[in-house]
Amino acid sequence: MFNFSKPLDLPPQLQWKYANEPELMTWTIRARNYNTFIANAMFWVCFIAITAGSIFLYRSTKEYLVFNAISTLLFFIIVNAALISMTHQRMNFAYRFTRSGIECCEWKDFPKWALTFLKWFSGIAAIIFIYLATIDPTFLIGALIGPGSMGLMYLSMAHSKTYQQMQTQHHHLVYEWKDFTQLAIATNREVVDLKFCHFDPRLGRIVKWNLNIFCKRKQKEAVANFIKPYLSPDVPFIKAKVNVPMSTD
């Protein structure tokens, strides 16, 4: 039995189907379950644009240098924080192998840390601007634009159930060993890829797709070699570049 990491507690919405069977292998991992090349390229293009915009914003005003520096810094931090939250999202994955097959629980909970960050950051920024307003009343405008807008963002995120539901996902995937038609060690990601073909009772039809098993770089060989004996003898075992599509289950 392999335990690559300390298991995370599954959220109450997810339960193992074969919990009564002894586990052969299990681990949990947080991974980016999408095309990271495109996401990273998007991040760097936007980061360069934001940096250039921040420099232009700072240099465009000759008066009130302290106010200009603080507002520029707030702009840079807020926009880049939003950018990273979009391009570097991670999903929680828990894998459990038994004699019956492979189970994968994947979930993403609403990031409550973001609410805490927004609340404290907007509060501290508001105090700074109010203090600066005692020196120059113009800073009250900055308090309304900067911390004020962050406060409104915090309130909308904290009280919008629709937004929170969009940021929350729970999936439970179950496969029998006989379902798999190809085993591959990915050369471009920390992934063991399994093609499968099985009847999906939810869709009411045969589904052919692939299961990406995320793991650490040094674990790929061990995971693939462990899986191989449980597959049919005619199932191909290869090394190849694989696609990592966003889960749509």
Rank of each mutant, 00 (worst) to 15 (best):
1 M>L: 11
3 N>A: 06
10 L>N: 01
10 L>V: 06
12 P>L: 02
17 K>C: 00
17 K>D: 12
17 K>W: 05
19 A>I: 06
19 A>L: 07
29 I>P: 03
31 A>Q: 02
39 A>H: 02
41 A>V: 11
42 M>T: 10
48 I>R: 00
49 A>G: 07
52 A>R: 11
53 G>N: 06
53 G>V: 06
59 R>Y: 15
63 E>Y: 04
63 E>W: 01
72 T>C: 09
82 A>G: 13
89 Q>F: 04
92 N>C: 01
94 A>H: 03
94 A>V: 04
98 T>D: 08
100 S>W: 09
100 S>F: 08
102 I>D: 10
103 E>L: 00
103 E>N: 03
104 C>D: 01
110 F>H: 10
113 W>Y: 09
118 L>R: 11
120 W>R: 00
125 A>E: 12
128 I>F: 06
129 F>M: 07
130 I>K: 01
132 L>N: 02
136 D>H: 07
137 P>D: 07
138 T>R: 14
139 F>Q: 03
140 L>T: 09
141 I>G: 07
143 A>I: 09
150 M>V: 13
154 Y>Q: 00
161 K>L: 14
162 T>E: 15
166 M>Q: 07
169 Q>Y: 02
174 V>C: 04
174 V>T: 13
180 F>R: 01
182 Q>G: 14
186 A>W: 01
193 D>P: 04
195 K>D: 15
196 F>H: 03
198 H>S: 11
205 R>S: 12
206 I>L: 09
208 K>N: 10
213 I>V: 11
215 C>I: 05
221 E>V: 03
221 E>Y: 00
225 N>E: 14
226 F>N: 03
226 F>L: 11
228 K>W: 12
232 S>P: 08
235 V>N: 13
248 T>E: 15
